[in-house]
C-alpha cells in the first residue's frame, strides 16, 4: 500500500495532475449505491418498455415489435443518450436518462430480432449499439446495460445453435475480459470487461450440466482456456512487482488445476474471478467470485449422479485437499 505522492514518484506521474484527476470525482457514489440506483433505473426502463409495447398493441394495433418498434427504440436511445451526454448532475436524472437509452436499445434489438426472426441479428444490432454507446456516451452504467443485452442475446443464440457445446465458445470471453482488466485502454471499458469475465460462470449455471468432468465431452476447451488464463495471471504477477513464486502462488496453481480438471467449467470461471480479485485487490470480484464458487460447489454435489456415500468421499477428499493447501499457506506464514 502507498500514498498518492509515493505512487506518483514511483511511476513518474505528475503529482498535481494526479491530485486534480482524483479530486474531480470525490462526490461519486459508492458501488453499492450505483448498483441500487442502476437497478432503479433498469426497473424504470422495463416499465417504459412495457408502456411502449402496450401503446403499440392497444393504440396502433401492432401485436409484435418489428421495424416500428426498432425505429421508436432508436429514437429513445438517441434521446436518452443525448440527455446523458449533457453531463447532468442529478443522480436520478442521470439514471433516468440511462434507463431511457437502455430501453431504447432493447426495443431496437427486439424489433430487428422479430423482423428477421433471428437472435443473431438482434445480438449483432445490440453489439453495434453497445459499441456506439460506449464510445459516444461514455457512461459506465449504460455501457454495462448495453453490453449485458448484447451478451445475453449472443449466449441465447449460441445455446440455440450449439446447445451444451456453447460453453466452449463462451469461454473465449474470459481471456478478453482478463486482458481488458490487466491492460485497460484509456477509454473506460471495465463494465464490458466485467461482463466478459462473468459470462462463462453465469451462462454455465444454465448451460452446463453439473457432472464430473471426466464423464462429459463438453467443456474441455473451456477448461483449457481458463487454465491458460490462470497461467497468465501467475506469470504476470511477478512481472508486476509481486513476490516471485510464493506459497500463495503454488496454492493458486494447484487449486486452479484441481478445480478445472474436476468441477464444471463454470466453477473454474468463478475461481478465475477470485484469483483476479486477489491479484488486483478487487473487493467486488472477491465477493462475487466467492458467492459463485459456493453456488457451483453446492449445485455440483446436489445434482451429481452418484450415491450419497460416493458424494461424501468426494466431498471429504476435496475438502481435505483444500485444508492441506491452507496448511501449506499457514506454514509459510501467509495466514493468521
Amino acid at each position: 500500500m502507498m500514498a498518492l505522492d509515493e505512487l506518483c514518484r514511483a511511476f513518474g506521474i505528475d503529482p498535481e495532475a494526479a491530485h486534480r484527476a482524483l479530486a474531480a470525482k470525490t462526490d461519486a457514489a459508492p458501488w453499492y449505491a450505483e448498483a441500487l440506483l442502476g437497478a432503479g433505473g433498469w426497473f424504470s426502463a422495463i416499465a417504459i418498455i412495457v408502456f411502449v409495447l402496450a401503446f403499440c398493441g392497444l393504440v396502433l394495433g401492432i401485436d409484435e415489435p418489428g421495424i416500428g418498434a426498432a425505429v421508436a427504440g432508436l429514437a429513445l436511445f438517441a434521446f436518452g443518450g443525448a440527455w446523458r451526454r449533457r453531463q447532468v448532475e442529478g443522480l436520478f436524472v442521470r439514471h433516468f436518462a440511462i434507463a431511457i437509452a437502455a430501453a431504447g436499445a432493447a426495443l431496437v434489438a427486439a424489433g430487428i430480432g422479430v423482423e428477421t426472426e433471428s437472435l443473431w441479428a438482434a445480438a449483432a444490432v445490440a453489439a453495434a449499439i453497445a459499441a456506439a454507446g460506449t464510445v459516444a456516451i461514455r457512461d459506465p452504467l449504460l455501457q454495462f446495460l448495453l453490453v449485458a443485452l448484447a451478451l445475453v442475446l449472443a449466449i441465447l443464440g449460441l445455446e440455440l445453435d450449439a446447445g451444451r457445446g456453447a460453453i466452449d465458445v463462451i469461454a473465449l470471453a474470459a481471456p478478453v475480459g482478463l486482458w481488458l482488466y490487466l491492460h485497460p485502454p484509456a477509454l473506460n471499458v471495465r463494465p464490458a470487461a466485467t461482463l466478459l469475465l462473468l459470462a462463462l460462470p453465469l451462462a454455465a449455471t444454465v448451460l452446463e450440466p453439473p457432472a464430473l468432468s471426466w464423464t462429459t465431452e463438453r467443456g474441455w476447451f473451456a477448461r483449457a482456456v481458463l487454465l491458460l488464463c490462470f497461467a497468465a495471471l501467475i506469470v504476470l504477477r511477478p512481472r508486476a512487482g509481486a513476490a516471485p513464486v510464493s506459497a500463495t502462488t503454488i496454492v493458486a496453481a494447484v487449486l486452479a488445476a484441481l478445480v478445472a480438471l474436476l468441477l464444471p467449467a463454470g466453477a473454474a470461471g468463478a475461481l478465475l474471478l477470485m484469483m483476479l480479485a486477489y491479484t488486483l485487490g478487487h473487493r467486488p470480484f472477491a465477493a462475487i467470485g466467492a458467492a459463485l464458487a459456493v453456488w457451483f460447489i453446492w449445485q455440483f454435489y446436489y445434482e451429481l449422479d452418484l450415491d450419497l456415500l460416493a458424494k461424501s468421499i468426494l466431498l471429504a477428499a476435496v475438502g481435505a485437499g483444500c485444508l492441506a493447501l491452507y496448511a501449506l499457506l499457514a506454514r509459510r506464514g501467509a495466514t493468521a
Binding site: Y278, K311, I313, G319, L325
Partner: peptide
C-alpha cells in the same frame, strides 16, 4: 483473505462430506 477462503472451502466440504 485467500487463506480464510481456502479454510472455509475446505472445512465446509469436509463437514458436508
Amino acid at each position: 483473505w485467500a487463506g480464510r477462503a481456502l479454510l472455509a472451502l475446505g472445512a465446509g466440504q469436509v463437514l458436508a462430506g
